[in-house]
Simulated scan of single mutants.
Amino acid sequence: MKSLGSIRRSFAPWSDPASKPFISFKNVTKTFGDFVAVDNLSLDIFTREFFALLGASGCGKSTLLRMLAGFEQPSSGEIILDGQSLAGIPPYKRPVNMMFQSYALFPHMTVESNVAFGLKQDGMPKADIAERVDQMLKLVKLDKFAKRKPHQLSGGQRQRVALARSIAKRPKVLLLDEPLGALDKKLREETQFELMDLQQQLGLTFVVVTHDQEEAMTMADRIAVMAHGKVIQVATPPEIYEAPNSRFVADFIGDVNIFDGTVSAVSDGFVRIETEGGLSIKVASQETPAVGGKAGFAVRPEKIRVGNTQPACAPLNAAQGVVWDIGYLGDMTVFHVKLGDGRVVKASSLNAVRLVEDPIGYDQDVWVWFDENAGVVLRD
């Protein structure tokens, strides 16, 4: 099997004008009574893409997935799959399969019988079923557990049985609704990479719904961040994290510090912002907000440095404060630094060495600072 690195670096059909979407949501709206679950949403997903729908509970992501599967019908708009409108096509006739968070395994059936169930329903010959089941169980590394029943398996193994059953019919699209939610943290992290490898092996299009940002960032080629039935931003994980298109996305994805202020200058690819707390910020930006207008500045904790001495950039992009809280996480240390205006800034530092000669402690006076390219200007 090829390394995912070379494949994922070059895979970007969404940036090719000649590429045609494999799945298209065109002005799709779904209402339940007076509640609008999906609001006039348009979205394109491409062949062999690992696509993530990310958002808080109630944002409409699962409803979108259920409409693609055929379990719900759009109130208006159209869903197109591989050039065909899905209007009026029942779930069992769609070239998609769905893996649920609960796994929905039959407790009285063996592992191989669970995987074979859909194939039997489709009338596949017995010999072909046996061969396909064997292929699927080897693929998910469960061929030695074929005769066991679900209660004799671990949570991770049950998850892989459900996955094998979902792909046994070789759908064009695999839909995954919070597929790793029932797993513990370490197993969830391992399974994320297993899913990526499996998707590359099968050459299928995966659409996953999750509220776990780390899960989406790890697995997906692109992420659609959703809120209130709308897509707020669609981009690759690095773009979502480093270049959020709005205050909502910046605040929703990962940890962030947001400073609000007034634009004092815009020139030569830089923006100057004077914050309400007295911090002067100079940042490289393609944005050109109006001088005198309001703007925000978002900077991630790992981009902020903490030290005992005044940095060379001061007074720009630097402020004094007091260490308020410290969180040691093993791989990194998180500092909460209270500035003079009372706001608390979060900074994180990688623990690259085992011992630090001059560690920063509680209630210590420190400086926090960041580079001119460390964050982004937010207009809203």
Rank of each mutant, 00 (worst) to 15 (best):
residue 160 R to T: 07
residue 293 G to P: 02
residue 98 M to G: 05
residue 100 F to E: 09
residue 257 N to S: 11
residue 366 V to I: 12
residue 232 I to T: 06
residue 248 F to T: 15
residue 167 I to C: 03
residue 24 S to Y: 08
residue 378 L to T: 12
residue 108 H to K: 01
residue 38 V to H: 04
residue 313 C to E: 10
residue 267 S to Q: 11
residue 284 A to K: 11
residue 142 L to M: 12
residue 75 S to G: 14
residue 148 R to Q: 12
residue 328 Y to D: 13
residue 283 V to A: 01
residue 123 G to P: 05
residue 103 Y to A: 00
residue 16 D to Y: 14
residue 32 F to E: 14
residue 6 S to G: 12
residue 373 N to W: 02
residue 11 F to Q: 02
residue 169 K to S: 14
residue 59 C to D: 07
residue 161 V to F: 00
residue 155 G to R: 07
residue 78 E to H: 05
residue 94 R to E: 03
residue 49 E to R: 12
residue 375 G to L: 00
residue 274 E to G: 05
residue 201 Q to M: 08
residue 265 A to W: 10
residue 92 Y to C: 06
residue 380 D to L: 09
residue 74 P to F: 10
residue 241 Y to I: 15
residue 89 I to S: 06
residue 362 Y to Q: 06
residue 225 V to R: 13
residue 123 G to I: 15
residue 351 N to T: 08
residue 146 A to H: 11
residue 362 Y to L: 14
residue 48 R to N: 06
residue 245 N to V: 14
residue 51 F to Q: 00
residue 23 I to A: 00
residue 343 R to L: 09
residue 355 L to I: 15
residue 370 F to G: 00
residue 205 T to H: 10
residue 241 Y to S: 05
residue 69 A to I: 15
residue 287 E to T: 09
residue 132 R to G: 09
residue 101 Q to L: 04
residue 27 N to S: 10
residue 195 L to S: 00
residue 31 T to Y: 02
residue 45 I to L: 04
residue 5 G to E: 06
residue 317 N to T: 08
residue 74 P to C: 13
residue 210 T to I: 04
residue 187 L to Q: 12
residue 358 D to C: 04
residue 228 H to P: 00
residue 79 I to K: 03
residue 86 L to K: 04
residue 358 D to V: 13
residue 352 A to D: 14
residue 341 D to L: 03
residue 1 M to R: 10
residue 23 I to H: 03
residue 49 E to S: 10
residue 192 Q to I: 01
residue 59 C to Y: 04
residue 135 Q to C: 02
residue 251 D to T: 15
residue 59 C to P: 08
residue 55 G to K: 04
residue 261 G to H: 06
residue 315 P to K: 01
residue 109 M to Y: 06
residue 52 A to N: 04
residue 239 E to G: 08
residue 76 S to T: 11
residue 326 I to A: 10
residue 268 D to R: 07
residue 61 K to F: 03
residue 344 V to W: 15
residue 19 S to P: 06
residue 193 F to G: 01
residue 151 H to L: 01
residue 222 R to D: 11
